[in-house]
Amino acid sequence: MSDILTFIVFILLAGLAIGSALAMVAQRNPLYSAISLIGVFGALAGLYLTLAAPFIAAVQIIVYAGAIMVLVVFVIMLLNVEEEVRRPVRLRYLVPTAVLLAAVLFAEAAFILFYVNDAPAPPSPLATAEPSTTGLTASIGTGLFTTYLLPFEITSILILMALVGAMTLARRTAARPQDLVVPGAQVLPLQMVEPARVGDDTPVRSDTTAEAARTLGLNEQEQTRE
């Protein structure tokens, strides 16, 4: 009985996920696409629940459907994205290639499914006397702070590094004084426009940043921190 119930829930959730995914791709308005994506995430969370993984389901809702989607919607609003205009497909020959590759992928998946089905099934977790604790919040917490402590800590370095990197790349830098902004054109090096205003570019032999900054023409205000 419960098997049939699980199956019905699975079909419902899977249908919702696939339907939302199709809607996401088909929508022309990016905002509707984003909202459809929330539907996909929600349905997936439900599927995780049926797989007895409540923690991942909660994370799915909190992180994906919550935080990330808010970000996506925010970006769409900020960029003021218009409705997509249909343009002719530029790389026409890619379409049959894509179809072919997709077919190969499907064949591959089917092959593995049927092939591996012949293999002796691993002992089902249901067969063991004790119910499995995998996927429960407690077991995930224990694993995270014992077995997987080291990857957890490396991840923290990774996130710190990602923050620093994002700041580095996104920080606005002032145009150098030797760059001249020509209205309506790109930034040109001053050297190209007015060579006379640039001093001798013979590099200094000393090894101090201060002197190099002087040679580069970075003035004092520029050197102070932003």
Binding site: L150, I154, M161, G165, L169
Partner: peptide
């Protein structure tokens, strides 16, 4: 552990390669 270490290295290099923004 190996995968996360690899990502730590790779992500750093993505930033470093683009470091001279001008």
């Amino acid at each position: 552990a190996l995968y996360i270490s690899l990502e730590l290295m790779a992500l750093t290099f993505y930033v470093l390669v683009a470091f001279t923004k001008r």
